[in-house]
Design a protein around this nucleic acid. Sequence first.
DNA 1: CTGAAAGCGCTTACAG
DNA 2: CTGAAAGCGCTTACAG
Lengths: 351, 351
Amino acid sequence: MATIKEIAKLANVSTATVSYALNDPSKISEETRAKVMRVVEQVNYRPNSIAKSLKVKRTNAIGVITEDITVFNTPEIINGIGECAEEHNYHIILENIRLYKRIGNNYQDTSKFTGVIKDTTSVLMSKQVEGIIYVGAHCRDVTGLIDKTPIPVVYTYCYTQNEGDYTVNYDDFLAAYEATKYLIGMNHRKIALITGLMGSGQCQERIKGYQKALYESQVLFNPEYLKVGNWEREAGYEAGKELLTSVNRPTAIFALNDVMAGGVFDAAVELGLKIPEDLSLIGFDNRECSYSYSPKLTTMALPLDNIGNMATEILINSLSKQKQKSFPQHSKLKCALVERESVMPLLKGEL
Amino acid sequence: MATIKEIAKLANVSTATVSYALNDPSKISEETRAKVMRVVEQVNYRPNSIAKSLKVKRTNAIGVITEDITVFNTPEIINGIGECAEEHNYHIILENIRLYKRIGNNYQDTSKFTGVIKDTTSVLMSKQVEGIIYVGAHCRDVTGLIDKTPIPVVYTYCYTQNEGDYTVNYDDFLAAYEATKYLIGMNHRKIALITGLMGSGQCQERIKGYQKALYESQVLFNPEYLKVGNWEREAGYEAGKELLTSVNRPTAIFALNDVMAGGVFDAAVELGLKIPEDLSLIGFDNRECSYSYSPKLTTMALPLDNIGNMATEILINSLSKQKQKSFPQHSKLKCALVERESVMPLLKGEL
DNA sequence: CTGAAAGCGCTTACAG
DNA sequence: CTGAAAGCGCTTACAG
């Protein structure tokens, strides 16, 4: 590759002039600029941005640490990050931790991989990234994973209690509230809920959202309609079966993820019940599988793209001297209901 | 951040000595090395790798251009790239083109986005990446997309006729051959095939594999068992219905992707046919949905991780002065059958 | 074994 | 408007 020196020689100017021609044309005459640009194009000269970065002490690079890029939520978050980064002329150094391969299902225990994280943030910092976005594979508390750094880090799909650090997730409470409201709007009153692991904060939030929607519409919360699951299909099947064989069979089931909803499909088939005619079903996550069930599953879509976008917006904003906007420290983005074929309104007579 | 100069001052040595302590301890005494390292740790000094890169003219960075990270094949390829890159101490600059958002379904027409590609390779080169891996969203000819570059580029999940450029994909022919063989091994003889778009080279290869397996086992190729699809679920449904209502109903169907296999499930349900009792079904791709059908779909898994690994291996190998290994210019990796629940052996009496 | 010095490819006050 | 020069933070022959 040619250097600025060679361009300068070819154009019969100083390297300073070449630099100005490229970066700040106002400083030189249009004439010399044209002269320089001609040889720049001739030689197809591309400035070495490594050298520039060293000088100006800015890299326009942000580090993205993903816990596991093969988990369904991550690619779309990266997509959102990339989109926003591009707008602001930032680029991404990707560090994918491969958490599952590394520590199996122990991801809850963040102490198992603080070592890796320490190393990767260290590498990222030595590469002079201006900020870091951390993308969790599961929404959980990740406090202490990343040491205090001189550069900002924003967390997505997980949260932290480090003061000063930003966090962007989606609103579990609101999503469950709206899903339940939707079912109620379809005249359902016997609405069962299949939960995830009760230890999960997300799960708790969603239960609260479900209950609030119920209360608001004056439908009594019936504990028999609350089945504890574990996010897995088998649990959805078991819960579905219990629910569907109970004396006071619900007319609608809200499964707290699409995978467990798959288990409800299994139970319904086994019992000869048709969805949505005999049972309305709604899932959560809008994963690829939700589209593959038959009938296609109505579900809550996660705002993954927006999470990535917002996280990047926040990061880049906090990088600029005069912070234009101010963001809440903990954003919770809105999920969107995607209506497909698994929910049917109850006729008034069926109430 | 501290610099090497400050470390030198604190340790009472020259910057050269600090550098040696960090990079080539053999050049200095153990004693002074210890002295230097002590202050390095005290200050938590991290060398600025931008500065180092400028000096040594190596960045240990590879550029990864993905057409669309939200397409199912891409994350796992990136995963494989990351794994291999890490082993060799390389890092990744990710440029995700967002092809779908940009040009919709026109991805076949590569001329629609040569501009974007030109810009991103240009950026990548100015950032001094040592090589580029291109990850297609769909396997197709992509010749001419990237201009001749002074650095190596290897193509995955697509191919090119640029001489000198490496390509790594999976073996469609072999995969279809083995899937068909498997069905034959299960005593099936009436094996129907639902193809994708006939214009696709992959589709052609798979048809050939299917036919070869048939011939080898002396089962006559029956053109009525060959239904042309288009990769979409609806087409699988239509083809499935025709097949399953024909006089000479096949005992097994091989759908050339998992999505169309979903359509076959639909047709089977509609016709009251049970899978696998009344019909064995096998898919292709091992997408998330294949696991969500009921019963779970037996399918061919794509070696995505390996594709990423191999591509990176090839790239990094071609970067080293004395190329240790030599690789075929066009690798075709082997798919793996994943046996689940949608295939049943035919009893001899049923033949 | 250790240090002084040049230089990687840029940018940017500063002087003219 | 233009150029000479210093300097970003490193590495690495070279001399001692």
